[in-house]
Amino acid sequence: MKYVVETKNLTKSFGKEQAVQSLDMKIAKGEIYGFLGPNGAGKTTTIRMLLGLMKPTSGSIQVFQQDLKKSRISILSKVGSLVENPSYYPHLTARENLEAWRKILGAPKSRITDVLAIVRLSDVANKKVKGFSLGMKQRLGIAAALLNNPELLILDEPTNGLDPSGIIEIRELIKQLPQSHGMTVLISSHLLSEIDQLATTVGVLTKGKLIFQDSIEAMRKLAKQNISLRVSDQDEAHRLLLAKGIQTDYQKDRLILSEFTDEEIANAIQFLVQKQIAIYRVEEEKRSLEDIFLQMTREDQVG
């Protein structure tokens, strides 16, 4: 498989502290890669290294199958990025800001009008950025990232500071980029709900380590189902099932059966009914992605 971004053993330390530890990140073409992790997990550090803003302590980075160290400039000419809080020149207008970057990128002048329209800043194009709200500055940052029609778009927390309608707008925009422009998108966030609605692949980072990297479906599968049982005699039911070799989780008012097939559940219930135990409730408890995410990051903290 040819990856657009592939890192091997990527590590960055600041003094003794390891901000990113042996990261093997793989992003295939046309994907929207959701880079997920709590604040301070090392997402921005990783992104800075992908853009050549920071030099890795060890490990390698390949973008478009080229070594970043060797071909940084030719790679960056096909990358658009927004890192952390947006950067801008406050004393220049929105159009002048874009013009400063466009000149370096060599994109056609008309592209400025296009990207301003995409992020809906056309009305304020000739106003100084000094007076912009946080959301407007964020849009300007996204516009800048789109200037060169990049093959790889890297957006670090792009919905920061946007209002709900702005978030939806930007989300819809990002969603259609792979099909309409063949872009590959890397988007980082600390909010799972955001990644859930956008990403096709997810990478979860905690404390500098990539603890999960797979399709969003695979992550959803992790949202395993639990069955909870409420019965007439909980102690007896627990004992009987245990004797039959069926492990249940004994909770205050119910028994929890996890990771069972439909058939196994049916057998267990039939068995209890035969033993004269009345079944009051059989309920499915679904774990949300949020729970999984929290559990993943928590497990790592314990270890």
Partner: peptide, 18 residues
């Protein structure tokens, strides 16, 4: 200070320039 004030170095250096 044009770059220092708003941390615009990262934007500038992430462009294809040396």
């Amino acid at each position: 200070s044009i770059e220092n004030e708003t941390n615009a170095w990262k934007q500038l250096i992430a462009l294809p320039v040396s």
